[in-house]
């Protein structure tokens, strides 16, 4: 039977093999550094393979994954956060924060008006705290927005 534990185990084994091939090209140790840069990564990779084998051979009962709508919701939240990460610098603090916070808020409790208010409130409130109370160098708007 295919279980998430097994899938993860296989992924980890592949990553560990990449680790080993990559470490293989590193130089051997010398007199002043007997082990050199490759030995410890090899040990870690072998450890990864052994424990992943444990997962593949004896997986736990399947985890309690949420239903599809929730998974879609979580995937959407991830995309929002990625978009937020990219836009924070070019678009300034206020607009991206308000949008991202409003979407997350709506996803937790789906009521549009409170969500929008949460977004605006968090964005403005946090900006004031960060900029004036903690002295972080944030930009409210895109640079050059006001000429």
């Amino acid at each position: 039977m295919i279980r998430t534990d097994r899938i993860l185990g296989v992924v980890v084994v592949i990553v560990a093999l990449v680790f080993i091939t990559s470490a293989y090209n590193l130089p051997q140790g010398n007199l002043f550094d007997k082990l050199g840069p490759k030995a410890f990564p090899m040990i870690v990779a072998v450890g990864m393979i052994l424990s992943a084998a444990g997962l593949i051979l004896r997986p736990d009962p399947e985890a309690d994954w949420p239903a599809t709508p929730s998974l879609v919701s979580i995937a959407l939240a991830t995309l929002v956060l990625i978009g937020y990460a990219y836009s924070l610098k070019p678009l300034g603090f206020l607009a991206p924060t308000a949008v991202a916070a409003a979407i997350l808020s709506y996803q937790i409790t789906p009521r549009p008006l409170p969500a929008i208010l949460t977004g605006i409130g968090l964005s403005g409130g946090l900006f004031i705290i960060f900029k004036y109370a903690l002295g972080l160098g944030l930009f409210a708007f895109p640079r050059g927005f006001f000429g």
Partner: peptide, 24 residues
């Protein structure tokens, strides 16, 4: 309510990490 708390925590995390390195 969590609908205010959790977005707040996320935004604080973002600003915190961003202020350390300034890297997306």
């Amino acid at each position: 309510p969590p609908a205010i708390l959790l977005p707040g925590v996320t935004m604080i995390s973002f600003v915190g990490i961003y202020s350390l390195s300034g890297s997306y």
